[in-house]
């Protein structure tokens, strides 16, 4: 200790400062990466939204023209509607599914790890592979889903080939991917003190009231966090399935915003308009996160699980 004290009085770098500087150096790649790959691109999106840019000629400042242009285009509003429909159905279903599975699979019993793994496995499958697997599952003629429906004499939709069911099919395949949410909620449920439930049982509470008055309110912050996560990530993650499975069709039935942005930027080389669309999407997601954050009074409870 005394060695460092005396060194600290020297005019050169004190060991404390040197140590702090070295720690910042260790953080440098992370901070630089976060700035270069997330921060700067986000700012760049906002900037490009006000320019006409085709990736060949330098960008030209056009003010609000891009926003005026996309708001006039019908396909933009179709994509907004589809994206809202998708996010507002898939994400709540995903959270509900994760909650039901967590309630079923949270007890520590023999074999439970195997059951959890079986559910979690679909979350491990890469997005492209997942999309291709579902493309085949939804095949109207040979796909297992319709073969099973035919076997039990239920109507067999054309799924991705029918504008009326295509978006619903994408919602179904997104909603059943609940592995991560389930594990998070299992961990949260197991962290609830058993004494609460024992006390409730002694007071004669049934299973439903134990859920209604203990589990549900205590898990609510986690459910909100999951919902926000699923909406935010789902809004972007829907890109791969639309590209692989439907190409935005039939018609514009599954044209979601990320797919339209991709088409605008890399198909039509209207990067300015694509950036304007992306800015609108960012703003909408930011507003949604902020609203949930305000309603829930912050997530102080969940920042260090």
């Amino acid at each position: 200790m005394s060695v460092h004290r005396s060194a600290a009085t020297s005019p050169r770098w004190s060991p404390h400062l040197l140590r702090r500087a070295q720690l910042w150096l260790m953080l440098a790649p992370f901070l630089a990466g976060a700035f270069l790959l997330i921060g700067l691109p986000t700012l760049l999106t906002a900037g490009l939204a006000f320019t006409r840019y085709d990736a060949i000629m330098p960008p030209v400042w056009v003010g609000l023209e891009n926003f005026a242009a996309i708001f006039r285009r019908e396909v933009f509003w179709i994509a907004v509607r589809n994206s809202l429909l998708f996010a507002l159905t898939a994400a709540p279903l995903q959270v509900l599914g994760a909650l039901l599975l967590a309630l079923l699979l949270h007890p520590v019993r023999r074999g439970v790890e195997g059951y959890r793994s079986a559910v979690y496995l679909s979350a491990v499958v890469p997005d492209v592979a997942y999309a291709l697997i579902w493309l085949w599952l939804f095949n109207p003629l040979y796909g297992p889903i319709n073969l099973v429906l035919a076997a039990v004499r239920l109507p067999q939709p054309l799924w991705l080939a029918d504008p009326a069911t295509a978006l619903a099919a994408l919602v179904i395949m997104a909603a059943v991917r609940v592995g991560e949410g389930m594990l998070l909620l299992i961990a949260a449920r197991q962290a609830l003190p058993a004494a609460f439930f024992q006390a409730a049982m002694l007071d004669g509470a049934g299973r439903w009231s134990a859920f209604r008055y203990i589990t549900w309110p205590l898990l609510l912050p986690w459910l909100l966090l999951l919902l926000v996560r699923d909406v935010v990530i789902g809004a972007h993650a829907a890109f791969t399935p639309t590209l692989i499975m439907t190409g935005g069709g039939p018609g514009y039935a599954t044209t979601l915003l990320p797919f339209l942005i991709y088409e605008e930027a890399f198909g039509s080389l209207r990067i300015g308009q694509a950036a304007a669309m992306m800015s609108v999407m960012f703003a909408a997601i930011g507003l949604f996160v902020w609203l949930v954050f305000r309603r829930s009074g912050g997530w102080a409870q969940v920042d260090e699980p």
Partner: peptide, 20 residues
Amino acid sequence: LALLLLLAPTSAVWLPRYVL
């Protein structure tokens, strides 16, 4: 910051990243 970055999916920034 790290939690905020968790919520910003990297696929959201692929267009400006491409330009960069």
